[in-house]
């Protein structure tokens, strides 16, 4: 994993305001999404993040970071 499980949870949570506001922002440029379309886009983004998160790591450098973020204070 490239990010701690808790970190992943927080990233996914942060997606909620982004998605919810995205619909309004896009309306300004005359792209009107329905709820379903927004949900589908959300699903795709979540899937991409999940794939990225579970991709095996390439460098050792990040491994060190992950260890820190996993530790409990």
């Amino acid at each position: 994993m490239r990010i701690s499980k808790a970190g992943l949870l927080v990233v996914l949570a942060f997606l909620a305001p982004v998605l919810v506001e995205l619909r309004t922002v896009l309306a300004w440029v005359n792209i009107e999404l329905s709820v379903l379309e927004t949900a589908i886009i959300g699903g795709i983004i979540i899937a991409v993040i999940l794939v990225w998160a579970f991709l095996p790591e390439n460098g050792d450098e990040e491994g060190a970071e992950r260890d820190v973020s996993n530790s409990e204070l």
Binding site: A13, E65, S71, L73
Partner: peptide, 26 residues
Amino acid sequence: QRGGTGYFSWLKSLPWRDPVFAGMAL
């Protein structure tokens, strides 16, 4: 202090697993 580096990647080094920290930060 926990080993975080970079402009933004230090965010990853925060103790998100800790509900006290995560809740207060959110």
